[in-house]
Amino acid sequence: MEEEDMEFSKELELDVAVKVVHLVCSLCQRVQSSLISSNSDQVKSKDDDSLVTVADYSVQAVVSWILSEYFGSQNISIVAEEDSHSLSKSDSSGLLEAVVKTVNECFSEASKHGLKCPVSPLKPAQVIQAISHCSSTGGHKGKHWVLDPVDGTLGFVRGNQYAVALALIEEGKVVLGVLGCPNYPVRNGLINHQHPSTSNMSPGIADMWEKGCVMYAERGTGKAWMQPLLQGDVKLDLMKFTRPIRVSSIKDPALATFCEPVERANTSHSFSEGIAHSAGFRRKPLRVYSMVKYAAIARGDAEVYMKFARAGYKEKIWDHAAGVLIVQEAGGVVTDAGGRPLDFSKGIYLEGLDRGIIACSGAVLHDKIVAAVYASWESSVL
C-alpha cells in the first residue's frame, strides 16, 4: 500500500468511526427510553452475572457490519465485549427478534449520518453473524478495532450514564478513540444527573437532555474534539459544531474533583478515598457509571479518575482504550498506579497492570496520587 493510500485510510477510519458512534448512540437512546417507560424485560444476565441488553447486541451488530463494509470483512479484526452464544439459544428468541428489529431500524437512519446501509433488512442469521465477527483477541501485531457496545450497562438500564466506546489499535498502540455519551449533555456540569422521565420535563430541560455528545481523538495530534449528538431527523454540518476539548487547569488537590466507578464489585471505594485524602483532596468522590469518567476529565468537568480493582479482577481493553486516548490527547495523563503506561498489546486484558488505573488532568495531580499509592499500599486490604 502506498503512503498516500495509508493517509487516506486513516482519515476514512476516523470519519467512519465517528459517524457510526453517532448512529448507534441514537439506537441506544431509543432502547433506553423504551426500558425506562415500559419496564421491558429485554435484559439478560450473562454467565458472569453482568447484564446485557438489546442495545449491547444491536450496537455490536451495526458497528461490525459498518466496519466490515468499509474496511473488508475478510481482513478486519474486531475485539468486542459480546458474543452471540446466548443470543442463539432457543430461549432467547424474543431477545433476538428485538435485536434484529432494532438493528434494521438503526440502519434506516444510516444515510442521514453519511454511512452505507444494507440493500435489504438483515435477517436473524446475518445479525448473529455480524455479532460473531467480533471475535478477535487483539494483540501486538496489525490493526484491531476495539468496541464496548454499551459501557456501563447497569447505568444504562437505570436511566443513568453510559457510553459507546470504539477505538483502533495499531501495533499495540491506541491510535483512534471515539466515545459516545448519550446522557452527557454538551453543557458542562451535568455528569451525575439521571435521564429524566419525559412526562415531567419542561421544554428547556428536555432540549438539554437531547444534546448528548461524541468525543474523539487521534494519537499524536495533541487535540481532542467534541460534537453534539445528532438527534432525530435534524441534519447538521457537525464540523460547524465541533469544538476542541481540554483538561482542567486545576492543580490544587483541595479544589479537584475525582471520579470512581459506582459499583463496588470491581473496585475499592475505601482505598480510593484514602488515597484521595492522603493526596490532599477534600471533595467527595463523584461516582459515575462507564467511561463517561474519562470524558469528564477530557473536557474539564473533573480532574482525576481512580480505579483500584479487587484481587482477581482483570481490566479489559474495551473498558479503557477510547477514553485513555481522548484524555491523553486532551492534555491529561493516564497510567497504572505505579506510573507506567497502560499496555494494550497483550490481548483483551490489560496485562501487567500495577495495582490500578489513574487518569489525571495533569502531571502535578498525577504525581501526588502515585506517591500516595506507594505510601498507602502496604496497609491496603484490597
Score class of each variant (00 low, 15 high):
residue 73 S to W: 05
residue 73 S to A: 15
residue 74 Q to G: 00
residue 74 Q to N: 07
residue 74 Q to E: 12
residue 74 Q to F: 03
residue 74 Q to K: 13
residue 75 N to P: 04
residue 75 N to Y: 03
residue 76 I to D: 03
residue 76 I to A: 00
residue 76 I to N: 03
residue 77 S to V: 06
residue 77 S to R: 14
residue 77 S to F: 03
residue 78 I to K: 09
residue 78 I to M: 06
residue 78 I to L: 12
residue 78 I to F: 03
residue 79 V to P: 11
residue 79 V to L: 15
residue 79 V to N: 11
residue 79 V to I: 15
residue 80 A to P: 06
residue 80 A to V: 06
residue 80 A to D: 00
residue 80 A to Y: 02
residue 81 E to L: 04
residue 81 E to T: 07
residue 81 E to P: 08
residue 81 E to G: 11
residue 82 E to Y: 00
residue 82 E to D: 02
residue 82 E to W: 04
residue 82 E to I: 04
residue 83 D to T: 13
residue 83 D to C: 05
residue 84 S to R: 12
residue 84 S to H: 13
residue 84 S to E: 14
residue 85 H to A: 15
residue 86 S to Y: 10
residue 86 S to G: 00
residue 86 S to V: 10
residue 86 S to K: 14
residue 87 L to M: 06
residue 88 S to V: 06
residue 88 S to D: 09
residue 89 K to E: 15
residue 89 K to H: 13
residue 89 K to S: 11
residue 89 K to R: 14
residue 89 K to L: 13
residue 90 S to A: 14
residue 90 S to Q: 11
residue 90 S to F: 08
residue 90 S to T: 10
residue 91 D to K: 12
residue 91 D to A: 05
residue 91 D to Y: 09
residue 92 S to W: 01
residue 92 S to F: 01
residue 92 S to Q: 14
residue 93 S to C: 04
residue 94 G to C: 01
residue 95 L to D: 02
residue 95 L to G: 03
residue 95 L to T: 03
residue 95 L to P: 05
residue 96 L to D: 02
residue 96 L to R: 05
residue 97 E to H: 09
residue 97 E to M: 01
residue 97 E to I: 02
residue 97 E to Y: 01
residue 97 E to K: 12
residue 98 A to R: 15
residue 98 A to E: 13
residue 98 A to N: 10
residue 99 V to R: 04
residue 99 V to N: 05
residue 99 V to C: 09
residue 99 V to P: 06
residue 99 V to G: 03
residue 101 K to W: 01
residue 101 K to I: 04
residue 102 T to Q: 10
residue 102 T to G: 00
residue 102 T to C: 10
residue 103 V to L: 04
residue 103 V to W: 02
residue 105 E to T: 08
residue 106 C to S: 15
residue 107 F to S: 06
residue 107 F to D: 08
residue 107 F to A: 07
residue 107 F to P: 11
residue 108 S to T: 12
residue 108 S to K: 11
residue 108 S to H: 10
residue 108 S to Q: 14
residue 109 E to M: 14
residue 109 E to C: 15
residue 109 E to T: 12
residue 110 A to E: 08
residue 110 A to Q: 08
residue 111 S to D: 11
residue 111 S to M: 13
residue 111 S to R: 15
residue 111 S to L: 14
residue 112 K to V: 06
residue 112 K to M: 10
residue 112 K to A: 15
residue 112 K to E: 10
residue 113 H to V: 02
residue 113 H to K: 09
residue 114 G to V: 07
residue 114 G to F: 01
residue 115 L to R: 08
residue 115 L to W: 03
residue 116 K to Q: 14
residue 116 K to F: 06
residue 117 C to T: 11
residue 118 P to L: 02
residue 118 P to E: 08
residue 119 V to F: 00
residue 119 V to M: 09
residue 119 V to Y: 05
residue 119 V to E: 15
residue 121 P to S: 11
residue 121 P to N: 09
residue 122 L to V: 06
residue 122 L to H: 03
residue 123 K to A: 12
residue 123 K to I: 04
residue 124 P to F: 02
residue 124 P to E: 02
residue 124 P to M: 01
residue 124 P to S: 08
residue 125 A to V: 02
residue 125 A to L: 01
residue 125 A to Y: 01
residue 125 A to F: 07
residue 125 A to T: 08
residue 125 A to W: 00
residue 126 Q to H: 00
residue 126 Q to D: 01
residue 127 V to Q: 05
residue 127 V to N: 07
residue 127 V to M: 01
residue 127 V to D: 07
residue 128 I to W: 05
residue 128 I to K: 15
residue 128 I to E: 13
